[in-house]
C-alpha cells in the first residue's frame, strides 16, 4: 500500500471537528442527565403492584430496549414531527430518541440494583419506623447506587458511541462533521481514520477504568 497520507486538510478544518466534538458532548450530556433522572421513576414503577403503573412502564421499557436506536432516532425525526405539537430539529429528535432509550436501559439498572439489596435492609428500615419512601431513599438507594456505578458508566460510554447515529439525521456531531470534511476535502481515508481514533481516545480510557473498577469491586466482594 503506497498511499500517500495527507492530514493537512484535517488540520485546516480542525475548527469544524471541534464544533462536532462539542455537539457530541452536548447531546451525550443532555441524554445522560435526563435518562438517568427519568430512569429511576420508571424503574420504580416496574416495582409497583398496581397494573396502572406497572404495565405502561414495562411496555415502555420493552419497546425501547427491543427496537434499534437508529429506528428510534429516525422515528422522532421523520415521523414524530407530523403529530408533534412543537417543532423538531435534528438535535431534539436525536435527544428524544437517545434519552428515552437511556431511560429504558437505566430503569433496568435501577431495578436490578434495588433488587440486589437484601430484603432484611427493607425490614430493618421498617422496624425503625421508617415509611416505605424513607426506607428507599435513606437505606436502599444509598447502598444500591454504589453497586450501580459501573453499570451507569457503561451506559454513559454506550451513549457517547450512540450519539454518532445522530449524524444520520444531519445533526452536526463529530461523525457528521467528519463526513462533511471528507466531502469538501476528498480525504475519506484520513478523515475516517482520524475520527475513529478520536472516538477511541475518548472512550477507551473510561472503558478501561470501568473494567478496572468492576474487578476491584469483585475482589472486595
Amino acid at each position: 500500500m503506497d498511499y500517500a497520507w495527507d492530514f493537512s486538510a484535517i488540520v485546516q478544518y480542525r475548527g469544524l471537528l471541534l464544533v462536532g466534538l462539542l455537539n457530541t458532548f452536548k447531546l451525550a450530556a443532555v441524554c445522560l442527565v435526563l435518562g438517568l433522572a427519568f430512569g429511576l421513576p420508571v424503574g420504580l414503577m416496574r416495582y409497583a403492584r398496581s397494573p396502572w403503573l406497572n404495565w405502561p412502564a414495562t411496555a415502555f421499557v420493552e419497546v425501547f430496549r427491543n427496537t434499534p436506536v437508529l429506528v428510534q432516532i429516525m422515528w422522532f425525526f421523520f415521523a414524530f414531527p407530523i403529530i408533534s405539537p412543537f417543532d423538531i430539529n435534528a438535535f431534539t429528535a436525536a435527544a428524544l430518541g437517545l434519552t428515552l432509550n437511556t431511560v429504558a436501559f437505566s430503569s433496568e439498572i435501577y431495578r436490578a440494583g434495588i433488587q440486589s439489596i437484601a430484603k432484611g435492609q427493607w425490614e430493618a428500615g421498617k422496624a425503625l419506623g421508617m415509611t416505605g419512601k424513607q426506607q428507599l431513599t435513606r437505606v436502599i438507594l444509598p447502598q444500591a447506587l454504589r453497586r450501580m456505578i459501573p453499570a451507569f458508566m457503561n451506559r454513559a460510554i454506550e451513549l457517547v458511541k450512540m450519539t454518532s447515529l445522530a449524524s444520520v439525521i444531519a445533526y452536526g456531531e463529530l461523525m457528521h462533521q467528519a463526513k462533511t470534511i471528507s466531502t469538501i476535502a476528498f480525504n475519506p481515508i484520513e478523515m475516517y481514520t482520524v475520527v475513529a481514533l478520536i472516538f477511541f481516545a475518548l472512550i477507551a480510557p473510561p472503558a478501561l477504568a470501568v473494567q478496572r473498577y468492576e474487578k476491584s469491586l469483585e475482589r472486595r466482594g
Binding site: 449524524s167 444520520v168 461523525m175 481515508i189 475516517y192 475513529a196 472516538f199 477511541f200 472503558a207 478501561l208
Partner: peptide, 17 residues
Amino acid sequence: EFLRTTPPIAQLFWFFF
C-alpha cells in the same frame, strides 16, 4: 478494544469509504 470502543458507524464508513 478498538472495535469495542469506536462507534459502529465510524467503522462502517471506514470500511466503505
